[in-house]
Design a binder for these strands. Structure first.
Length: 107
DNA sequence: AGGTTGACAAAGG
DNA sequence: GCCTTTGCCAACC
């Protein structure tokens, strides 16, 4: 029994994202694998998340280790601020070192 | 009911 | 290392 698969797919994705510990980040593909669907759906679900939801969507980034928002946008700035507050470090290219902060999942 | 879109990923050129 | 193509699956129009 992994997650509440009785719920909708989005809810499963949200739960998976909630499992990400502070100070770590996960890529879409990882979440997708956890819930058993394609990364696109994860991205769509993230966009569907509301501020009222208790989902740390900011800890979910793309496989390049970068924030999936266009730089200079509100979402980008906010997400970067939160991640920095959680201890995530950005390099010169504004990328996150997945070697250190990459979430190992349920490993 | 059907076509398009999407905060993506992996492989190929 | 960058751009293009393919796969992917659910939500949205």
């Amino acid at each position: 029994m992994k997650f509440s698969e009785k719920k909708n797919l989005y809810d499963r994705i949200f739960e998976a994202v909630r499992l990400i510990p502070a100070g770590s980040v996960a890529i879409y593909g990882q979440i997708a694998h956890l819930v058993g669907c394609s990364p696109r759906v994860v991205g769509y679900a993230m966009h569907s998340v509301s501020a009222e939801d208790d989902v740390p969507w900011q800890r979910v980034i793309n496989s390049k280790g970068k924030i999936s928002f266009p730089e200079g946008s509100e979402g980008y700035d906010e997400q970067k601020a939160i991640l920095k507050a959680e201890g995530i470090v950005f390099d010169e290219m504004r990328k996150i070192d997945l070697k250190k902060f990459g979430w190992e999942g349920l490993l």
